[in-house]
Design a binder for these strands. Structure first.
Length: 272
DNA sequence: TAATCTGTTATGTA
DNA sequence: ATACATAACAGATT
């Protein structure tokens, strides 16, 4: 489900329910799903109070008294809040986070989600975050330009790489490149600093508007109480063979790095 | 019906 | 540095 706006929507809702609440314990339901953390490690945050729940890039971060607990939802991670354990449909449930009066249910039918827990007494949390690029509104264009100016990979691939810029996924990157009038296959070394500046500005505009609308619901995304509405604003993504809403040219779908990619062949010309 | 493809993600390998 | 396979699974397509 999640790119940055969807994760932020989820984080805000979870925060309204669980900020300042104490975790009683975690119950791992589907053991084989956690590849990057041990079951014992989950016990560390038993009895921890949640101080804050927020989003960085596509990461959902629960800050507790002594730890940072990070969930990455990948493709299909989602939550439900229930009152009674008997109400749970256990299909695809990975984890139960038990609170005094409610249970936060974490589901992930493709089991791609990852969990990290970092002790605040160490630098591991900062080290982890430092592997990722800044969010668009904090990007320094000159710095990003230095990173991409010699790359031969397509600009779409570069923008999806979270070590360059955090928060763009397959939907919004198509929308950003459309708004910026740049062909998704344009090689990084052909992007001018001015074009990169346009891309960064449009990334900020589009992600912020999507946050206002609580994300995009294409398949199954809904946060907890909200359905996103940004799907009504999409200009190219999922619009294969439909006329461009600006110029009427038929939108094309291609593959870039194996990802379905939509663009307007009239307004987004490839540079060679 | 069954085989194949696709996917709001990301990492590991070569 | 860059392309490809892989993770696991449901729903759509052939």
């Amino acid at each position: 489900m999640p790119e940055l706006p969807e994760v932020k929507t989820v984080a805000d809702e979870l925060s309204s329910f669980f900020k300042n609440k104490t975790i009683i314990n975690l119950e791992l339901i589907t053991k084989k799903s956690l590849k990057n953390i041990s079951e014992e490690a989950l016990n560390k945050i038993n009895n921890e109070e949640i101080i804050n729940i927020y989003q960085f890039g596509k990461h959902l971060i629960f800050e507790t008294t002594n730890y940072n607990f990070i969930l990455h939802l990948r493709m299909e991670g989602k939550f439900e809040i229930i009152k009674n354990k008997n109400d749970i449909n256990l299909d695809h449930v990975i984890l139960l986070i038990n609170f005094e009066k409610t249970i936060l249910v974490f589901k992930d039918h493709r089991k791609f989600a990852t969990i990290h827990i970092f002790d605040k007494k160490t630098n591991l949390f900062n080290d982890f975050l430092n592997k990722f690029g800044k969010e668009p509104w904090n990007i320094i264009v000159d710095d990003l330009y230095q990173k991409i100016k010699n790359k031969k990979s397509p600009i779409k691939t570069i923008l999806l790489d979270q070590s360059n810029i955090s928060g763009l996924g397959n939907i919004y990157v198509d929308e950003v490149l459309y708004k910026s009038k740049i062909h998704p296959l344009t090689k990084g070394n052909l992007i001018t600093k001015e074009e990169l500046s346009t891309i960064v500005n449009n990334s900020t505009l589009i992600l912020k508007e999507a946050i206002e609308l609580k994300g995009t619901t294409i398949k199954t995304f809904h946060s907890i109480n909200n359905k996103g509405e940004y799907q009504n604003k999409l200009m190219v993504h999922t619009k294969n063979k439909l006329p461009c809403q600006n110029c009427g040219t038929i939108i094309e779908k291609i593959k870039v790095n194996g990802r379905g990619t939509y663009y307007c062949p009239q307004e987004q010309k490839e540079k060679y």
